[in-house]
């Protein structure tokens, strides 16, 4: 379902900032949804707290960019899949905080790749300069995410084994 990035759609730094802010806001919203799901539906409070912390981090990242004035057009230069937004299909109800930060690290890596590709592809000098700054910024985010992940307890090998699984077999 993925579409190819359309880097030519970004014609100014203002558009780029608006897109990045939207990415960070959407990412915060998804992490907040996951935090609520882990708290309310799974009683997995540690992982819920990790996702909540990630959401607050994304809120701070979004605030680093100016809010666009006036309505935005259809800004979807990355195609249909936004690399910054956590894939809900990648979560598991038994996952640990370590997994939450590892998921966030993967998304930061994907975002770094997109900004790197933008810097390579754009022909607009101002956009290229900002894209390169965003690349450096994402590297910082990745370092921070790796630190946060690595201070978490490492999950046991059988972390996803459930003695009372949802789909129990007749022989259980």
């Amino acid at each position: 379902m993925s579409g190819s990035p359309d880097f030519k759609a970004i014609t100014s730094t203002a558009e780029l900032f608006a897109i990045v802010r939207l990415m960070e806001e959407s990412s915060a919203e998804r992490y907040r949804e996951l935090a609520e799901a882990f708290e309310i539906s799974c009683n997995n409070l540690e992982t819920a707290e990790a996702f909540r912390a990630l959401a607050e981090g994304e809120d701070r990242h979004a605030a680093e960019f100016p809010a666009p004035v006036g309505p935005l057009g259809a800004l979807k230069p990355w195609g249909e899949e936004d690399p910054e937004i956590a894939d809900p299909g990648a979560v598991h109800y038994l996952m640990y905080p370590w997994h939450a930060y590892d998921l966030a690290l993967r998304h930061e890596q994907e975002t770094l790749a997109i900004f790197t590709a933008l810097a390579d592809a754009t022909t607009i000098p101002e956009v290229k300069a900002e894209a390169l700054r965003l690349v450096e910024r994402e590297k910082g985010h990745m370092d921070r995410m790796r630190e946060l992940r690595d201070i978490q307890p490492i999950p046991p090998d059988d972390w996803d084994e459930d003695d009372d699984p949802p789909n129990w077999e007749a022989s259980d």
């Binding site: 919203e29 882990f38 539906s41 809900p88 979560v91």
Partner: peptide, 27 residues
């Protein structure tokens, strides 16, 4: 007055499982 997507979401928190596709449908 114009309304953003978040204005159409209530304060009630979904009880769907983490990773359920319905979150994205709501969005």
């Amino acid at each position: 007055v114009t309304y953003a997507a978040k204005d159409f979401k209530s304060d009630v928190k979904p009880v769907w499982c983490p990773g359920c596709g319905d979150y994205a449908v709501l969005s």
